[in-house]
Simulated scan of single mutants.
Amino acid sequence: MPLDDAQARLAQVQDRIARAARLAGRKPEAVTLIAISKTHDAAAIRPLIAAGQRVFGENRVQEAQGKWPALLAETPGIRLHLVGQLQSNKAEDAVALFDAIHSVDRPSLVTALAAAMDKVGKRPACFLQVNIGAEEQKGGGAIDALPDLLTQARITGLPVAGLMCVPPLNVDAAPYFALLAKIARDHGVDGLSMGMSGDYEAAAMIGATHVRVGTALFGAR
């Protein structure tokens, strides 16, 4: 992607986030834009870095390990977020590479991450993923299991930054975002990782602190 295309795409997404936030009486800077770079190689990512984007998201630990160490060496100050499902046996690798992990969804993963953080000496921010639409095929813990998971995460010392969800496809996402925001308030949690290329403006209006945007920045895969 040429630099001017990257700059235009980034500016458009940033402007839409800012407008949505202001409509809801929020400050635009309260919403962090995570550029989802999964399946894109370093050559595709560099123009967005050159355009000024500094927060990126990946779905798989192994894929991120293959391209990000070199990119991070080139440009200090980039923050990496893991937004895909995480196997417990990859917890140590994830802690070592990422600054935030958005898919903490079960007690065994909380235990694995706590041990990995103690071993590595690094404590990435953690979002607890909620299966907001109660979909069998989706990642995330059940809504009614969240209180126990949150208690375990806090007791074991995980830095709980917020909640994360992926609403069902092909329906209005706004009610699901509103539900996640209510659940977060009820449990004294501030961060909300919600909203993707098709619905990030709605998410920004409803309280998202992090939106995960891939296609609108990189184009269709």
Score class of each variant (00 low, 15 high):
Gly157Pro: 02
Glu74Arg: 13
Glu63Thr: 11
Leu179Lys: 15
Gln62Val: 13
Val61Met: 06
Ser103Lys: 01
Ala142Tyr: 03
Ile101Glu: 05
Thr111Met: 05
Lys138Ile: 01
Ala91Met: 10
Ala94Val: 10
Pro167Lys: 10
Val104Asn: 13
Met194His: 08
Tyr176Asn: 11
Ala64Glu: 13
Thr156Lys: 14
Met117Phe: 07
Glu135Pro: 00
Pro76Thr: 10
Asp144Asn: 14
Asp148Asn: 05
Asp190Arg: 15
Ile78Gln: 14
Arg106Ser: 04
Ala145Ile: 00
Ala96Met: 02
Ile143Gly: 00
Leu146Gln: 12
Leu82Tyr: 04
Val189Phe: 08
Ala161Thr: 01
Val160Thr: 09
Leu158Gly: 03
Ala178Trp: 05
Ala91Trp: 12
Phe177Asp: 08
Val83Leu: 14
Arg123Gly: 05
Gly133Gln: 09
His81Lys: 06
Asp190Ala: 15
Leu128Asp: 10
Gly84Asn: 00
Gly133Asn: 08
Pro69Tyr: 07
Ala125Tyr: 06
Leu146Ile: 07
Leu86Arg: 13
Gln87Pro: 11
Gly66Ser: 15
Lys119Asn: 15
Asp99Cys: 09
Ala94Leu: 12
His187Asp: 03
His187Arg: 03
Val166Ser: 04
Gln152Glu: 11
Val166Asp: 01
Ala178Thr: 12
Lys138His: 06
Leu146Tyr: 12
Ala114Lys: 09
Gly191Asp: 02
Trp68Asn: 02
Gly141Ala: 15
Leu82Gly: 07
Thr151Glu: 09
Leu72Ser: 05
Asp118Thr: 14
Ala115Cys: 02
Ser193Gly: 10
Pro69Lys: 06
Asn170Thr: 01
Lys67Arg: 15
